[in-house]
């Protein structure tokens, strides 16, 4: 059995010993930078210049971590999993949202024994507090092929509520103590980031390769059984459904009951007047 050590510096050799993937992170496909501006930006540069899929960029700290809508992702150095994986999906990018969310939920269950849920479409919550953010960015490489960068940031170690004197974190975003949670807080012990990463990459790859194969082998335009299974598993973990929610789309606000999601994963909202609204994007509160 491999010995697992806990450190604020990632042990890449240990990740590779624990990896059970066919493609992702294998051999020279892990690129570790102790500090980087943004793993997503770095991975996108690699992808645009032809980097193969399955390359994973890892870091201990980002100086310009990215969130959605141009927001910043704040991390505690050496305490988070900050990863970006280069993928070349032949399926629509929204299905990556489902794959990534499910992979994180399953990894949290496997590593911590804690049940996490998904706030539509891809925030991972423990209770009502966010433990993981997912940012998927797409572009085309120099040959015109679609590339997708799957960025995942997980609050792994540290205690946000106990670290109220941590100036770096709190000055940047003091409300984090109320809205965010770490795995250490959730499961009561320090978690190996290396073990988490190895499990996470396996969970992503299993679903990703299965869907790639299904789409490549299918001649039909409709969703196949793997696609439907992923969508249904994702749907079952959505804590948003059945709730009265407000969706922020820039300056626009939409309120109603989140009744279900459709085949493409769009949120089906019923507003107070009884009108059905299909939500393609936005922040749900």
């Amino acid at each position: 059995m491999n010995e697992i050590t806990l450190s604020n510096t990632l042990d890449v050799a240990q990740i590779q010993r624990l990896l059970d993937t066919k493609l992702t992170g294998i051999g020279n496909r892990i690129i570790y930078k102790p500090v980087v501006d943004s793993t997503n930006s770095f991975a996108m540069q690699l992808a645009r210049t032809g980097s193969e899929e399955g390359v994973v960029v890892l870091t201990d700290s980002q100086t310009a971590g990215k969130g959605r809508q141009g927001r910043h992702w704040v991390d505690m150095a050496g305490k988070n999993v900050l990863s970006s994986t280069v993928l070349r999906p032949v399926f629509p990018p929204y299905q990556l949202v489902m794959i990534a969310s499910l992979a994180v939920v399953q990894t949290i269950a496997d590593i911590c024994g804690v049940e996490a849920t998904i706030k539509w479409p891809n925030d991972i919550l423990i209770g009502e507090r966010k433990v993981t953010g997912i940012l998927i960015e797409t572009s085309h490489d120099h040959t015109g092929q679609l590339v997708a960068i799957l960025g995942i940031g997980v609050n792994v170690n540290g205690r946000l509520r106990a670290s109220a004197t941590d100036k770096q974190t709190l000055q940047a975003k003091p409300e984090l103590t109320e809205t965010a949670i770490t795995l250490e807080e959730a499961c009561g012990h320090v978690v190996s980031r290396e073990a988490f990463i190895a499990s996470l990459l396996y969970q992503i790859e299993t679903r990703y390769l299965a869907l790639q194969q299904e789409v490549r082998e299918s001649t039909a335009q409709s969703h196949g059984p793997i696609s439907r299974l992923i969508r249904e598993q994702w749907r079952r973990h959505l804590s948003t459904l059945g709730r009265t929610v407000t969706v922020h789309q820039g300056a626009k606000l939409l309120s109603g009951v989140a009744e279900d999601v459709n085949e493409q994963g769009e949120l089906l909202l019923r507003d107070l007047s009884g009108t059905g609204i299909t939500i393609t994007w936005g922040d749900v509160n």
């Binding site: 629509p92 929204y94 479409p121 393609t280």
Partner: peptide
């Protein structure tokens, strides 16, 4: 085109 908060380029 934005779908499930993923922005895909249209070229």
């Amino acid at each position: 085109i934005q779908s499930l908060n993923v922005i895909s380029e249209v070229e």
